[in-house]
């Protein structure tokens, strides 16, 4: 299922900025480091971040795109079930960038 999300906040800047949109799919075949995902985090709610590292158990770490972001340590190791969608592409104010 395809969903559209509106971005709030600047921790994914310059890749994504507040007010940008992303088109994301709930279904995906592979998850790789570097993918942008929308996650339902147990503490921080629905967040959008980049997959930083995938462990052997399949759990993964997230990161932002700049130093304003919550750190990977703060967000902690997360289960695959927290991923609500994988971003396919983004609609930015001035350009269209594949993520």
């Amino acid at each position: 299922m395809i969903s559209v999300f509106k971005i709030q906040g600047e921790s994914m800047s310059p890749r994504l900025s507040g007010g940008d949109f992303v088109v994301a799919s709930r279904f995906y075949i592979t998850l790789s480091e570097g993918d942008i995902v929308v996650v339902q985090h147990p503490v921080y709610g629905r967040i959008i971040k980049r997959v930083k590292h995938i462990g052997e158990s399949g759990r993964f770490l997230l990161t932002g795109e700049n130093e304003q972001s919550l750190s990977s340590e703060q967000m902690g190791w997360l289960a695959r079930s927290t991923i609500k969608a994988k971003v396919l592409f983004s609609g930015r104010k001035n350009t269209l960038l594949a993520t």
Binding site: S3, V4, F5, K6, I7, Q8, G9, E10, S11, M12, S13, L16, G18, D20, F21, V22, V23, V38, Y44, G45, R46, I47, I48, K49, G64, Q68, S69, L70, S71, Q74, G91, R92, K93, N94, L96
Partner: peptide, 23 residues
């Protein structure tokens, strides 16, 4: 272009937000 379309749809339907959280 795509932002304009999505922005228009957002006004009509109100997309969910995903937070790019700061610390």
């Amino acid at each position: 272009m795509i932002h304009k379309i999505l922005s228009g749809l957002d006004k009509l339907y109100g997309f969910r937000t995903a937070s790019a959280h700061c610390d």
